[in-house]
């Protein structure tokens, strides 16, 4: 850990002012502190935002939900409105990390957690995400956990969040306050950027930009589920995960939104797949076609081709579950 200055922000605008030029915000610190101890990141300044008044969950005028950036994962998962109207989010939260971590981790921090790529975590290894231009040692290395979508020849890491996958399926937006006080709302679909040749750039946030809230649109109705497949029953990152929201009308799929975790540098979504399902009757053939369409883009590494069949099977199981007339 390198020496750093510490400031505690009393207001978001104070935080954004302090948060520029080599500074890092700290809230729950569940990922940041590990990264600092290992000197994977070495901020000059920590701006403590954990006491900002951003821990409320409230209804929006449109009938959606505004989730303050400081809302703890465990509180969000237990929120009555979330459990009733956005169960996919509650399930995703509870599938992540451990109870201790969820008690500390915040909504904003969860979105910004860093990859779990082995090579990112070892400062002796080249890594374009950690040390731009040094190379990607994961390629050709141990790649069982890595991406099958959206990777580049410069980086094949996955995004580890479960929560973000559910938010992606729910069409969430991220509210961001910039240093000069401007507040903007970004759809989550535009929040993350693919690695390309700049894997160290993971989001569109500029220095000093502070996530203040996550906004959920009004509930879509229909059924929701989050299915996470992993190597042990708890406290493991997703090998693949599927967040699904499906509404049926008169035996046809009126709406389907699907997001995928553990397979890409960001929560993955494929609108082509969803439009294939739209206004169609659920059937094994349809679901197989949807899976084919999703996986047509998959580019596995040496050790993770299994993710293709695993994602296929998991997606079909989720679609079956969400469209099963008996349930």
């Amino acid at each position: 850990m390198t020496p750093f200055a510490y400031s505690r922000a009393a207001t978001p605008s104070e935080a954004t002012g302090l948060g520029r030029d080599g500074a890092s915000f700290i809230a729950g610190g569940t990922n940041l502190l590990d990264l600092m101890k290992l000197e994977i990141i070495t901020p000059d300044r920590l701006v403590d935002i954990s006491r900002l008044d951003l821990a409320a969950i409230s209804e929006t005028p449109e009938g959606g939900l505004r989730i303050g950036a400081m809302v703890r994962n465990s509180d969000l998962a237990a929120d009555r409105k979330v459990c009733d109207s956005y169960p996919v989010l509650a399930e995703a939260l509870l599938a992540g990390a451990s109870a201790q971590l969820r008690n500390k981790a915040t909504t904003g921090g969860n979105l910004l957690q860093r990859t779990r790529c082995y090579y990112f975590y070892d400062t002796a290894m080249p890594c374009n995400k950690r040390a731009p231009g040094s190379g990607c040692q994961a390629i050709g290395g141990a790649t069982r956990l890595h991406a099958i979508f959206g990777a580049s020849v410069h980086c094949i890491a996955t995004h580890p969040s479960d929560m973000a996958v559910a938010l992606r399926a729910l069409d969430a937006e991220v509210e961001v306050e910039a240093p000069e006080g401007a507040i903007r709302r970004l759809p989550l679909s535009q929040f993350y950027v693919l690695p390309g040749d700049t894997p160290h750039i993971e989001t569109v946030l500029a220095p000093g930009d502070l996530i203040t809230a996550v906004i959920l649109p009004p509930p879509q109705g229909g059924r929701q589920t989050y299915r996470k497949v992993r190597d042990r029953a708890s406290y493991a990152f997703a090998l693949v995960s599927v967040a699904g929201v499906v509404a049926l009308k008169e035996g046809r799929i009126a709406h389907a939104s699907l997001a995928f975790g553990g397979v890409a540098p960001q929560p993955w979504r494929n609108e082509t797949v969803e439009s294939m399902l739209h206004d169609r009757q659920p059937s094994a053939g349809l679901f197989a076609q949807a899976a084919d369409a999703l996986l047509a883009d998959a580019r596995p590494q040496k050790d993770n081709a299994f993710k293709i069949s695993l994602l296929r099977r998991t997606l079909i199981a989720v679609l079956n579950e969400l469209t099963d007339a008996d349930q």
């Binding site: 975590y121 070892d122 050709g140 290395g141 141990a142 042990r232 990152f237």
Partner: peptide, 23 residues
Amino acid sequence: IHDPRDGHIVNRDFAEYHLPVNA
């Protein structure tokens, strides 16, 4: 898990070396 090129252990913590957890 060893890196195939230099043999180093890549999963060096309890998040990635999977001991059974309570569940």
